[in-house]
Write a protein that binds this DNA or RNA. Structure first.
Length: 574
RNA sequence: GCCCACGUAGCUCAGUCGGAUAGAGCAGCGGCUUCCUAAGCCGUUGGUCGCAGGUUCGAGUCCUGCCGUGGGCACCA
């Protein structure tokens, strides 16, 4: 299913092979020496360059330029296919610079058009099963801006894995038992009781230095203060009247809250084009006894002991400075235990590449899970943990501390409302996951008008517009355009940019860094805009117009394919 | 105290496996529209790549130390 096409990677492979062939003929070159090829920053340095000669100085004990000259000479003598490589030169301290032949660029362009919507896809994953676990927020409240980064990052990483040939499952892991949910139920119950009896006494809970929230008396001290709790209570009141007044059991309140909140979460995710394949309830790991199997399995390996009524995991024997509790004195497991059991199910379900998307607060805890899995004989190399740094919210020049419970958060919905779906996604994707994301809410609305995402979409819309115009004036796209006519600097530069796309996708997938795609698309848009400024389509001779139209179409393909990976729309008009 | 990430232009950030003259957007300044979308284009100002050592042909990139920012170091999730 691999898309056989000419692109930068194909060319690299070709030149690399030629280099290896030549290097074998030079005395003193180590057997396992691998020449590296990269795209120089400066276009004057050609299209591809290798530093092989520089690296070989230490083995050959000769000046790098001399080595480079020798390699270049032998490369020319091979000879290199002139329809692929136009020239090879020695430059600078001893670099070898390669220039691509224009025939090759024409061939690349033709291949992009043939590949169409599949251009950029590859088969590195060979159809193996991959799972990306993301969002995984417990249903205690609406998704916040912080969850947004997780959701968009995870979803895009899943897209990237899909593009490089994995069969991807998107999973949301959650816990609807536990203390958090009890507090949630109690919060709803208190609000409900206040509706039943408006004379119920109230108290004030401090949420900030100068901010207080008034709540009904039975409200838990650490209860959830968001208005959505009141909405849920009101819904219960409308459905049941006063019937729940004397119900001490929190279950009906908890269940109602969970249902409403999950619907809300799904709706928010759907707005961002995110659709999970499955929701995994932590509770199933209790019901089927998996968590206890983990304890026993670890015990058999000698990594479990009892102390002070709790069950401990001997992490101190696995490189950590202290041991870790698996089961509390109360008999309740800590979250690590189900986490371990959960990851075992990922292996049992046959996933060969397992990706977890976590916020920076998990940095110290996931290693415990990996340690346990390793002890139990699972191949932890299959697990990749993507840690993204937190989103710092700034409002009115002040950083906002995000807490779902405190209701001092900004919801993801509010953000989407303010800046739109596309900008929201792009915003979370345009920066490296391991850098802090500063988010100035006051700026967001204004900035959204000038957001770089519009630049990409604008380039796409502009191409669509040209195509509409071409059709109007009766200019038809040719099935066999004369692509070798594309010799203008702006044209060749654009083709060279387009040919990088598959590699960019693969690198972004390998490193789990979607921002590489975002940055790349901007470069494509820049290259296209230069082409647009210098080369007209309509009004030129028919053959040239058709060749340029083909280039425009290829650009449009890269932009729309790239935007699709990022989950951002590619509008035909703006 | 220990662990992780980060520190690059006024601001927000890129910077490929260690390569040639460190880039972009925004902000600032100056221009561009009888012509396929000006949400655009061109030019320009702006840098001790946190600091100090080290590794080597070569360091923003790797190593060590220090300083700073954020996150974490629970029988909370």
């Amino acid at each position: 299913m691999a898309v056989e096409e000419n692109c930068l990677q194909t060319m690299k492979a070709y030149i690399q092979e030629a280099l290896r062939q030549v290097l074998r003929t030079i005395d003193g070159v180590p057997e396992d020496f691998q020449p590296e090829l990269e795209k120089p920053n400066n276009p004057e340095h050609g299209d591809l360059a290798t530093n092989a000669a520089l690296q070989l100085t230490r083995y050959l004990k000769r000046p790098p330029r001399q080595i480079a000259e020798e390699i270049a000479e032998r490369l020319r003598a091979l000879p290199l296919d002139p329809r692929r490589v136009a020239s090879v030169e020695v430059a600078g301290p001893g670099f070898l610079n390669f220039r691509l032949a224009s025939d090759y660029l024409a061939q690349v362009l033709a291949d992009i058009l043939t590949a169409g919507e599949r251009y950029g896809r590859s088969d590195l994953g060979q159809g193996r099963a991959a799972m990306v676990e993301y969002v995984s927020a417990n249903p205690t409240g609406p998704l916040t801006v912080g969850h947004g980064r997780n959701a968009v990052l995870g979803d895009t990483i899943a897209n990237l894995l899909d593009w490089i040939g994995y069969r991807v499952t998107r999973e949301y892991y959650y816990n609807d038992a536990g203390r958090q949910m009890r507090v949630l139920g109690a919060s709803v119950r208190a609000r409900y009781l206040a509706l039943v009896d408006p004379t119920l006494p109230t108290k004030k809970i401090q949420v900030a230095e100068d901010a207080w929230v008034e709540v009904p008396e039975p409200f838990p001290e650490d209860g959830y203060l968001g208005d959505y709790i009141i909405d849920i209570a009101r819904m219960l009141y409308e459905q049941h009247g006063e019937a729940l007044r004397d119900v001490e059991d929190l279950t009906p309140f908890k269940e109602a809250a969970e249902k409403v909140i999950f619907e809300d979460i799904r709706r928010t995710l759907a707005r961002l084009g995110i659709r999970m394949d499955s929701f995994f309830n932590e509770h199933t790991l209790y019901e089927n006894g998996k968590i206890w199997e983990v304890v026993e399995a670890l015990r058999e390996k000698g990594y479990v002991y009892e102390k002070d009524g709790a069950v401990w995991f001997r992490t101190s024997a696995l490189g950590k400075d202290q041991d870790t509790v698996l089961v509390k004195r109360t008999g309740e497991p800590t979250y690590r235990l189900p986490d371990i059991a959960y990851h075992i199910t990922k292996f049992e379900r046959g996933f060969e590449r397992i990706v977890d998307i976590f916020g920076a607060d998990h940095i110290a805890t996931y290693p415990d899970v990996l340690r346990a899995l390793e002890v139990l004989g699972y191949d932890v190399k299959k697990i990749d943990v993507v840690i993204y740094q937190f989103v710092t919210l700034v409002r009115g020049g002040e950083p906002v501390k995000m807490s779902t419970r405190r209701a001092t958060y900004v919801t993801l919905d509010e953000l989407i409302e303010e800046v739109g779906e596309d900008v929201t996604r792009f915003f979370f994707l345009m920066r490296s996951p391991n850098t802090h994301l500063e988010f100035d809410l006051d700026l967001a609305r204004e900035a959204s008008e000038k957001n770089p995402v519009f630049y990409l979409q604008y380039a796409h819309a502009r191409i669509c517009s040209i195509m509409r115009k071409a059709e109007e004036v009766g200019l038809r796209e040719s099935p066999n355009p004369e692509l070798t006519l594309l010799q203008h600097e702006a044209e060749t530069a654009l083709i060279k940019e387009l040919m990088r796309f598959p590699e960019v996708i693969q690198e972004a997938a390998r490193t789990y860094e979607p921002h590489r795609v975002a940055n790349y698309l901007r470069e494509v848009a820049v290259a296209f805009t230069k082409f647009y400024e210098h080369c007209r389509i309509i009004g030129e001779s028919e053959v040239l117009a058709q060749a340029r139209l083909a280039l425009a179409r290829a650009t449009r393909l890269v932009l729309s394919n790239g935007l699709r990976v990022l989950g951002i729309s590619a509008p035909e008009r703006m």
